[in-house]
Design a protein around this nucleic acid. Structure first.
Length: 570
DNA sequence: TCATGCACTTAGGACAAAGGCC
DNA sequence: GGCCTTTGTCCTAAGTGCATGA
């Protein structure tokens, strides 16, 4: 595989096929979570109405729960049961024999204590806040950066995750379990052998020190809930990540050039005699047309029950010969990544429809829709069609292609910048809808919409008044023709124009806000849209890049800013 | 072929900081 | 200047996909 590299002030290609990621890496190791601070004596835990002094380990875990008292998590049985079970493990035998029922536990004082603390933090004086900021900056300066191959690079997550209660998403069977504190003895360090090896905190030692330059991580540990490895890695703005990102979009562009052939192929495969081929072809059609995720198998009972394309079950689709005036409609309804619901009704090709009927024949709702297919089979096939092609490339490709198309379609070169930005947001939104990037409706959304509407109405009133005044001024000026009246007239005219501009801005804002209430634009912007499309659009349309990309975006996409001129096409 | 481990990208929510308004 | 909304950043869970070994 070719590595794309930034060198000599421009981007160029470099061969390095051995999987080596760096030759020199030096860092200070991760920052550990602050130690537990015991509660003051007047903050009590009550069991069955009686105050009870807990042992330190039991108290610490109790505070994890207490902090979450106003969260929906603590209303769920699974969460509560998991928490209680793990909490009891941290109790002394005495505590264990006393505390047998979570319902009799009263964490109220602890909850109030933490609430007051966070209030206190908010109300800190300017000097105190500044002091904390300075301290954080010092930590960032020492632990937040590393040296990699002669470049000083920011680290993405140099702080080790603090202990707490596991917040699995959706219907997660392990939610509420105790996520243990990580100590230096749990951490593996990775760095150059000829670098200054990071020092573990006093009195501690590392689990291991590695010098593996075939991987990009600086430190790792194993988390106790799922037994998965967690990593300390570089920030997205780093050279290493930027090059990888560029590569990703280059593969997506390569797909762009050959997708017609691939589409023709899978359409042909719908007719195959072999069931496995037809299943593969129908699934690929979904991945391409609907931007579904691949859908790896998951271990049952270990995580929330979510699916992607290859793991769809019969219960996740319904077939309608006719639906809303359309023929051969597939109704999708399933939970995807992060237990976000995917609901869509799609009119599909007749052959696809017929195939789906056959795939579902004689199956139970809980059976796999594509029983002869998995992601590994799919990706092997895709790699045969195009080197480097996998299921997820289709999401990148279709997202970027959609942005490009929508921008071409929606942008009016004569529009003022705010209107162009609305067009951009709409193009971005089309992508987010395609990829099903959702968010929960912001708190106070309807109230905010109301106040915005009130503002709009008020502005309209203003305009009406201003127009009336303008008319009078015009009449006065026409009647008398004196220069003073002319000035008044011109002033009134300007005022009307300004108000109308303000109104447009408000209306645009309202439209944008409403269309956006359940859609998250950030994910596609950050992960799916070739940044060169946006950079080129800004250059071509004379829109300042800062209107589209904030500082973090610009740092992450520096490679694209350097690379793309106004004429870049995906 | 299958299960499992590993390394990496993608994801939404929480929270803090900044910005706009009265 | 204080309040309230908006935006940016942090956090870490949840995916993808490849390698490995039985």
């Amino acid at each position: 595989m070719n590595n794309l590299k930034f060198g000599n002030g421009k981007w160029e290609e470099e061969k390095r096929g051995d999987g080596v990621k760096w030759t020199f890496l030096e860092h200070k190791g991760p920052v550990f979570a602050p130690l537990y601070e015991p509660l003051p004596d007047d903050v009590g835990f009550y069991y069955d109405g009686k105050k009870m002094k807990l042992s330190l380990p039991a108290e610490e875990v109790a505070t994890f729960y207490a902090r979450m008292l106003d969260h929906d998590y603590t209303t769920r049985d699974v969460f509560n049961n998991n928490f209680f079970k793990d909490w009891r493990k941290m109790m002394t035998s005495e505590e264990k024999s006393t505390i047998t029922d979570l319902k009799k536990c009263n964490f109220k004082q602890m909850y109030e204590y933490f609430k007051a603390k966070s209030e206190e933090r908010k109300n800190m004086s300017k000097e105190e806040k500044k002091k904390i900021k300075t301290q954080n900056e010092a930590i960032q300066k020492e632990y937040g950066v590393c040296m990699m191959d002669g470049h000083k690079e920011k680290i993405g997550n140099f702080k080790i995750e603090p202990p707490g209660l596991f917040r699995g998403r959706g219907d997660h069977p392990k939610q509420g379990m105790l996520k243990m504190r990580i100590n230096p003895e749990d951490v593996i360090i990775n760095c150059s052998s000829d670098s200054k090896i990071p020092q573990p905190p006093a009195g501690h030692r590392w689990k291991k020190v590695l010098h593996d330059n075939k991987v990009t991580w600086l430190a790792s540990w194993t988390e106790n809930i799922q037994g998965q490895t967690k990593y300390v890695m570089l920030n997205a703005a780093s050279k290493l990540k930027g090059e990888k990102d560029w590569q990703k979009y280059e593969i997506a562009r390569k797909l762009h050039r050959t997708v017609d052939k691939i589409r023709a192929q899978y359409r042909e495969d719908w007719k195959s005699k072999e069931m496995r081929i037809r299943q593969r072809a129908v699934a690929l059609y979904f991945i391409d047309k609907l931007a579904l995720r691949a859908g790896n198998e998951k271990e049952e009972g270990e995580t929330a029950d979510t699916v992607g394309c290859c793991s769809l079950r019969v219960e996740h689709i319904k077939l309608h010969d006719e639906f809303d005036g359309k023929e051969n409609v597939v109704e999708f309804d399933f939970l995807g990544k992060d237990s976000i619901r995917y609901y869509n009704t799609v009119s599909v090709d007749k052959r696809v429809y017929k195939n789906l009927k056959i795939f579902m024949d004689n199956k139970q709702p809980g059976d796999d829709l594509f029983d002869r297919l998995n992601t590994s089979i799919m990706n092997k096939h895709l790699n045969n069609l195009m080197e480097g092609l996998t299921a997820k490339v289709f999401r990148t490709y279709n997202a970027s292609k959609t942005l490009q198309e929508q921008l071409n379609l929606l942008t009016n070169p004569d529009d003022p910048v705010p209107a162009k930005l609305l067009s951009y947001n709409r193009a971005n939104r089309a992508v987010a809808i395609l990829c099903n990037h959702q968010r929960s409706v912001p708190k106070n959304f309807s109230k905010q919409m109301e106040t915005l509407q009130t503002k709009i109405d008020a502005k309209k009133d203003n305009i009406r008044d201003a127009k009336k005044q303008l008319k009078e001024a015009k009449a006065n000026f026409k009647a008398s023709k004196n220069p003073k009246n002319k000035m008044v007239y011109e002033k009134k005219k300007k005022a009307v124009e300004r108000l109308e501009e303000q109104l447009t801005k408000l209306e645009v804002q309202a439209t944008d806000k409403d269309e956006n209430k359940e859609i998250a634009l950030g994910t596609s912007k950050l992960n799916y849209l070739d940044p060169r499309i946006s950079v080129a659009w800004c250059k071509k349309c004379n829109v300042p890049l800062e209107k589209i990309y904030n500082k973090t975006h610009r740092a992450k996409f520096q490679w694209a800013i350097d690379m793309a001129g106004p004429d870049f096409e995906f």
